[in-house]
């Protein structure tokens, strides 16, 4: 088989929709869960442990017939800060975007303070992003800091 065909076989092209590329492999399943892809009914192709010069191993998600909003996509910035978003129309990339860390985050991650109300009662976490480069979050409830190294899915 030709090399070109091999590549195409890995993840088939989509006609219309959203492609999320450059997801670190270890974050792929978190990204799937944050975007709640399991609830979608359109065709979704997921690639896992692809080789990537930049990331080592990467994941890729192709969602057919669905155009996710930038706001929704920004939610994955905590786990896939270098993700590239391609909007596909008629098999062509018509738009390329990057994800941006939002100013505030609800849900998604846990507060790292075990004594925080969000870890003791059924309360959704809310954070203010106080540093975007090395993402640092301040809990709106206990006012403690959660940093990148301690991100854990809520």
């Amino acid at each position: 088989m030709e090399k070109k065909n091999l590549k195409e076989l890995k993840v088939s092209a989509i006609k219309e929709g959203t492609v999320i590329d450059h997801i670190p492999a270890r974050s792929l399943f978190k990204v799937i869960s944050i975007l709640e892809l399991q609830k979608m009914e359109t065709q979704i192709t997921i690639g896992y442990n692809f080789e990537s010069k930049k990331l080592g191993q990467k994941g890729i998600i192709k969602i057919s017939d669905k155009f996710l909003s930038q706001k929704d996509l920004n939610k994955i910035a905590l786990f896939a800060p270098e993700a590239k978003i391609n909007i596909i129309r008629n098999y062509k990339v018509i738009e390329k975007n990057v994800v941006q860390v939002p100013d505030s985050i609800e849900g998604i991650v846990k507060c790292m303070n075990p004594k925080c109300i969000t870890n003791n009662e059924d309360v959704k976490t809310k954070f203010t992003v106080i540093e975007k480069k090395n993402v640092t979050l301040k809990c709106k409830y206990c006012e403690k800091i959660t940093d990148q190294e301690h991100f854990e899915m809520k």
């Binding site: 303070n113 925080c116 109300i117 969000t118 003791n120 009662e121 309360v123 809990c139 409830y141 206990c142």
Partner: peptide
């Protein structure tokens, strides 16, 4: 309350 953030909640 002994839990941190309880008052905000």
């Amino acid at each position: 309350h002994p839990i941190e953030g309880s008052a905000r909640w």
